[in-house]
Nucleic acid binder design. Sequence first.
DNA 1: GAAAATCCGTACCGTACGTTACGGTTCCGT
DNA 2: ACGGAACCGTAACGTACGGTACGGATTTTC
Lengths: 220, 220
Amino acid sequence: MAAPNDHSGEELTARQQAVLDAVLALMVEHGGDLTMTAVARRASCSKESLYKWFGDRDGLLAATVQYQASRVRAGNYDRTKLDASALRDSLVRFAANWLSVISSPTSIALNRFAIAQAGTRGSNLGAIMLANGRFAIGERLKPVLDAGREAGLIGFDDTETAFRTFIGLVGRDVQIRLLLGDALRLPAAEIERDAARATDQFLDLYGTGLSVLGRNPTNA
Amino acid sequence: MAAPNDHSGEELTARQQAVLDAVLALMVEHGGDLTMTAVARRASCSKESLYKWFGDRDGLLAATVQYQASRVRAGNYDRTKLDASALRDSLVRFAANWLSVISSPTSIALNRFAIAQAGTRGSNLGAIMLANGRFAIGERLKPVLDAGREAGLIGFDDTETAFRTFIGLVGRDVQIRLLLGDALRLPAAEIERDAARATDQFLDLYGTGLSVLGRNPTNA
DNA sequence: GAAAATCCGTACCGTACGTTACGGTTCCGT
DNA sequence: ACGGAACCGTAACGTACGGTACGGATTTTC
């Protein structure tokens, strides 16, 4: 009753998706100074329609964040034939995918918006980003880690702690540097290298004798 | 010539420092909606003085960031008597100090401001935060790592890579979660535990036989 | 084919805020 | 003691922008 439209689980028309695409493009291009007039002009629609469809500016931003989050969901990682090589491959692919996501201009712009808004009123953009970003990937990777543990390839007590160590090794200082405007370049080749390095370090820390062959390959 | 006042390396009067303290307090309390009127009222000064001292709003923000950065500089870490125990102590103290800094309300509020501003015009708040935060601590810790390598306690080819691995193990997802508004609590006891865990993991990855005694203590 | 609904483009309104201006007061140097 | 500089508090100005209203065009519905 408070909000004119509750877009929690509703479908979006193609026209409305086009509007959200325009919002994302403007976020990437012009950063934080995103005005309703600019959105309407970019999307070739009237401001009246914006307010009818999304309620107010915050509703438009929330819809944009959820819209983008719904497209990031990559394929799940199968846990068939889980030997040491398959586990490592899953982790490497996961790390590379996550690195490419957090280093994409869209993700950077969206996180900047959510962080800026988390600083002002305690709205929900930050919570949405966390739920669809950090916590969603946790729920997707933890089954892989648990399967690796059940197969005796890796060992740990707390899956959450192991997961956090992994994303720490993968992400390091990349996200904060990009958010602060550092001109850090992450070409595909470097993403692959970082993903492999982080995975090897993780297996070095948590692997049992079954999964890790040589010691200290990270020094190379 | 362009800016009314260039506060690059100038001294600040006590009155001006009180103003910046007021800015920091307002940032922590009320987040991003920081108005010049609120600053003047909080600091019990006139807006005219604010503009005379800091030029404009951006100048005030930049001065605040630099002012806070100049106070974070903790004591350097001595490299005397560098045995395995001293190296580990230095790393643990460093990690604990950095965790307490990045989880402090002031740091969170300041980083939110810098990130929000990095999203809009490409001003220098983000660069200042990076120079005084991420890169400053790198230059402080790298000598410790190099000394550890020279003593044969740890081994790596690239100091920068080793350092980035270390801060990844220490920080993990803490900073991004706090910036996005996650109600993550980091009491002193947990900071100490995390610092010790990260250091042990780092030594496990990069330590030679001289520094790490038992294998896989991180599983406990 | 007309009535109704939807939508675009634009103009408009109210407010918030950055910035400037000004009267009154305090403090310092001579 | 006197003049001036610095400063505080407040008022005023201009603009930007969120939100609303309206005329005209287009699409949908019966």
